[in-house]
């Protein structure tokens, strides 16, 4: 009779066939990062592949999982970019050259993976998001792609009798992964070679 309520819910789920899997719609943002802004005017483009991103996976033993990540990434990246650069300019397209910016950055989701406690025999829901930040010259030429790995986890023991709820666990893990992406970007993007070159040039130009 250990943890009778979750066990009861789980049993009911198996009997009724109505549980398993998860449908997660992530809605979050991040605080404004405490960082010195770089002296750059940065063009920012959010592609539809980012804003509409949905991860769907059918795990044989655990059901269908759908993680809708798309639209919540925009406020997260906007908050970070606005703090990181002296000015940001939203670009609808990469097709038209833009003389008013030092470079253009485009966040891209390359891959998303997740695990649930039942798979790993641990207490944690975990999410890995592999982003890359494409850095373009103002004329639209791709200069480089900077890798941005993000990881988030949530402890199922924090959810009490809802500890087996994948919706809750994956939602919280995804929020932590987005915070991790924002933190990693804030700390390490200024060290990307192309960004250092641009920053040095901007600092020399301003004397």
């Amino acid at each position: 009779m250990r943890n009778p309520l979750p066990a009861g819910i789980l049993t009911a789920c198996f009997v009724l066939g109505g549980c398993g899997g998860a449908n997660v719609l992530v809605e979050t943002t991040v605080p404004t990062p405490l960082v010195e802004p770089l002296p750059l005017t940065m063009g920012v483009h959010f592609d539809a592949s980012l804003t509409d991103y949905v991860h769907e996976e059918d795990l044989e033993l655990y059901g269908k999982f759908r993680i809708e990540l798309g639209s919540t990434q925009v406020p997260v990246f906007e908050r970070v970019f606005d703090a990181m650069f002296a000015r940001t300019e939203h670009m609808e397209t990469l097709d038209a050259p833009s003389a008013g910016v030092d470079a253009i950055i485009v966040p891209v989701v390359e891959e998303l993976q997740f695990s649930i406690p039942a798979q790993t025999r641990s207490d944690f829901f975990e999410i890995w998001i592999k982003y890359k930040i494409d850095i373009y010259a103002p004329n639209g030429e791709l200069l480089s792609s900077w890798p941005l790995p993000a990881y988030g986890k949530s402890n199922s023991r924090n959810f009490g009798f809802m500890e087996s709820s994948s919706d809750l666990g994956l939602n919280e893990a995804t929020i932590w992964a987005l915070r991790d992406a924002a933190a990693h970007f804030a700390f390490y993007f200024p060290q990307a070679p192309e960004i250092r070159t641009l920053t040095d040039r901007a600092m020399q130009a301003s004397g």
Partner: peptide
């Protein structure tokens, strides 16, 4: 952790 973001995140 919000007031000091991103200095006290799990990995930082």
């Amino acid at each position: 952790v919000d007031a000091t973001f991103p200095w006290f995140e799990p990995r930082t």
